[in-house]
Design a binder for these strands. Sequence first.
DNA 1: CTGTGTCCTGGAGTGCGCTCCAGGTCAACT
DNA 2: AGTTGACCTGGAGCGCACTCCAGGACACAG
Lengths: 127, 127
Amino acid sequence: MDLMTTYAPAEASERTGLSLDTLRYYERLGLFGPVRRTTTGRRVYSDHDMAWVGLLVCLRNAGLGISDLQRLMGRLRDRSGGPTGVVELLEEHRSRLHGEIAKMNLALGVLDDKIAHYRGEAGQSKK
Amino acid sequence: MDLMTTYAPAEASERTGLSLDTLRYYERLGLFGPVRRTTTGRRVYSDHDMAWVGLLVCLRNAGLGISDLQRLMGRLRDRSGGPTGVVELLEEHRSRLHGEIAKMNLALGVLDDKIAHYRGEAGQSKK
DNA sequence: CTGTGTCCTGGAGTGCGCTCCAGGTCAACT
DNA sequence: AGTTGACCTGGAGCGCACTCCAGGACACAG
């Protein structure tokens, strides 16, 4: 059927930027997979796996915790049961993310203030 | 001059939003203080302490780790030795922060895509 | 004086997200 | 056949940033 590309663990690791351990870790937690195996038990990652992991990495970068991912992935997995709230979950995090960004920008402002402050003021403070 | 307000631990905690434990923890790590004590050993936080802690909270929010704070605070502390690189340190983190924000925005984009994707594909057109 | 509350200390425990390890199987090259 | 080396498993260990706890000492209202 599909003659799709497959990846040995090492290559999967390289392509995703995750360590072998982390890849296995994510799989163990059910964040993706199960990954196909050779008869002798070695993992064979598919394009599909890779895409999934790519999403995982992205969401982790976006600040979602492992448990968030577990919930999310669980829902994406069995989308057979009607309204599973995937969109809601994503949107919820989306607004969280906005909040984070706002907070960071705020901190950035404070940082700028501090920089200006410490650069402007020579060598003595103390009130 | 010494008409400055002081704060009992409980109040300091309330005002900074940090737990008593965390306040003590930060102090132990040398992130601020040393905090004055009563003759019997109880902490008495000053306005100065509070301001310092405020900065700490802000920088933590901005994503600096404890060790960053230790370095930073150490440098702010003894600004007697000329160029201590405080500004550099802050600016360095400032750009890190920019990077983080960029990353988040990117993730946000992916999230939006996913939302659009799963909304479009799942229960058919909605919106 | 006594009870209740706040605080003290040092150290152990927690949750997260990996990361490392021992001890083994299997693949590939020479 | 021998020798690497990639990979397997389950479980231990780690670094971070707290958080909790036991056991003890003031604080102060009644």
